[in-house]
């Protein structure tokens, strides 16, 4: 069952991605991009990571692609300006380079015998383990505990204790990054009335 879902999702993801790349109209490309995100999110759910799946949908499909759509509409390319990419030399170069890449990587992956690796376990065993033990693997709570550390049951001591997990640093840095990006985008996007015709 899981395998079939995975297979269908994989096929859809690949097809939609190919369509993103091949479409002339950028709006179509963005729609297919959304279509590409959904199978990926499904696969995340299969991997016992609901939090990340939801975040993916929210942020990627909900924010980033909306941004994209706004920009596409703002740019307002006319029909005739959809350039024909057929005469591009980079098409061939890209094809060559990408195929080399795929050949190298896939052959490596293919020839490496994964089952010999003791660390990896099959999905069935993991899912059995997770279901039976009742561990919440990829839930929101688990991720939150990962970042902020395990909560203390005693409320008074909880106030005193400082958050002592390493991931806090990167968390704060990420937020700073977002603020910086926000400010940057604001500055860059400020409309300059004298330049718009």
């Amino acid at each position: 069952m899981v395998d079939i879902i995975f297979l269908i999702c994989a096929i859809f993801a690949v097809i939609f991605s190919v369509l993103v790349v091949l479409m002339k109209n950028p709006i179509y490309s963005s729609l297919f991009l959304v279509g590409s995100f959904l199978p990926i999110a499904t696969i995340y759910i299969l991997m016992y990571a609901p939090f990340v799946a939801v975040i993916q949908i929210l942020v990627y499909a909900g924010a980033i692609l909306v941004l994209f759509t706004f920009v596409i509409m703002m740019i307002d390319l006319k029909e005739k300006e959809f350039k024909i990419d057929k005469s591009n030399i980079y098409r061939f170069l890209a094809f060559g380079v990408v195929s080399i890449f795929l050949i190298i990587m896939l052959s490596y992956v293919g020839f490496k015998t994964f089952p010999d690796n003791k660390i990896q376990v099959s999905h069935a065993k993991i899912s059995d383990y997770l279901d039976k033990k009742g561990k919440t693997f990829g839930s929101t709570k688990a991720v939150g505990e990962l970042i902020f550390g395990k909560p203390d049951k005693n409320p008074i001591e909880a106030n005193k204790k400082t958050m002592s997990s390493m991931q806090i640093v990167s968390f704060e840095l990420a937020s700073i990054l977002i603020i910086v990006a926000l400010v940057g985008a604001l500055v860059l996007g400020k409309s300059r009335r004298e330049k718009i015709k």
Binding site: I55, Q56, V59, Y60, A63, I64, L67, F68, A174, L177, I178, V180, A181, L182, G184, A185, L188
Partner: peptide
């Protein structure tokens, strides 16, 4: 994902 969002915005 966060970084990707920021980068897309900028």
């Amino acid at each position: 994902i966060t970084v990707a969002a920021a980068e897309a915005a900028v």
